[in-house]
Design a protein around this nucleic acid. Structure first.
Lengths: 189, 189
DNA sequence: TCTACCATGTAATCTGTTACATGATTGC
DNA sequence: GCAATCATGTAACAGATTACATGGTAGA
């Protein structure tokens, strides 16, 4: 479970509570790796049992909400993290886009609707891109690795946008669309 | 479950058996969407129960192995697929890269080892890129959507390679590396 | 007042992966 | 003879998502 290691990594910077960890992961890996509370709290519990972290409950008087559980990384946690960091990544990149999954079959559907869906995506990625560019300004003075990942996110976003716009143009030009995909079925067999 | 729809999509081209469907998905979505037999056979079973597909068992005398179960899409299946195709994608793109997850924390590790890991990735993506370029030659005469997705795969691969090489160069130039990440901890708080 | 956000957690469910079991054929 | 590929499937497990439950504060 990589989430455990993400937590251990973040705790290298400073002690944090669960809610903050989630926000941090989303800020660092936004649109690249999301987490749910359903994962983060049980992970912290496990890390605690494994002596990778310690926890102290703090009552913050001036502040809102329940007691916060501040987690800190232990030496054991640091060792285990270092071991993980130097190891080869366990698995390949996983990239699943339900939109792309649809896209590949757009030949069997209605072209107008396909164009609509593509335009929805363009709008979405445009919003995401400005978000990422804003975030970049915040991360650019941090360490080189955080900055580089942030740059990768922006470049990926730009690539998707470019591709979507080119795809839209090509589809609009394309005269090969035949109802029911009969032509394609013949080619594809 | 998108896999069910991927199966229904492929069955639009022609009747197929489970093993072949898996190969097809991997050829179409290679490195973008992988499937296991543990998903595909139960999915076919479910689709059969839902009357989305029909199955006929065929004994192929000349051919090796057990009887093949040829699945075809039904009208119900086509209708449900069409509904899905025109709907907005259920969820966001999911992209999880255990390598990137490590990368962002490389400041806490050994630089030599980080460079090694980056070089492993470069080798991996270079191999993947030539594979994708070969595949592209096969798909380029198919329908415009399949071709465009194939192009996207290549471009993503190229982007990752470029980024990895630039990252390597920047890291080698960087003199900011301090043991234990003390400097970064100070900046990052 | 209501929504949004802070904060912690559990349970049910859904998905996906790995391992196992079986057995034939093809090529080295 | 052995590994790889074709072919079908099940069971156990790991991982992730969604829904639920609780309760406080800030702002429109």
């Amino acid at each position: 479970m990589s989430i455990k290691y993400a937590i251990l990594g973040l705790l290298h910077y400073k002690e944090m509570h669960g809610y903050k960890i989630k926000k941090r992961i989303e800020a660092n890996f936004g649109h690249m790796w999301s987490v749910n509370f359903g994962q983060i709290y049980p992970s912290l519990k496990q890390l605690l049992e494994e002596n990778m972290v310690t926890m102290k409950e703090v009552r913050i008087d001036g502040e809102k909400g329940p007691d916060r559980k501040l987690y800190s990384i232990t030496e054991t946690g640091k060792d285990e993290f270092a071991r993980w960091l130097a190891a080869s990544p366990e698995r390949e990149m996983l990239m699943r886009d339900p939109f792309i999954m649809r896209f590949v079959f757009f030949g069997f559907g209605d072209r107008e609707r396909s164009i609509e869906l593509i335009e929805d995506r363009i709008a979405l990625y445009e919003a995401q891109l400005s978000e990422r560019r804003e975030n970049y300004e915040k991360w650019r003075n941090h360490d080189i690795y955080v900055r580089l990942v942030s740059e990768l996110g922006i470049r990926l976003n730009e690539l998707f946008l470019e591709w979507l716009k080119e795809a839209r143009a090509e589809i609009l030009e394309d005269q090969g669309q035949v109802e029911g995909g009969a032509v394609r079925a013949a080619i594809m067999s």
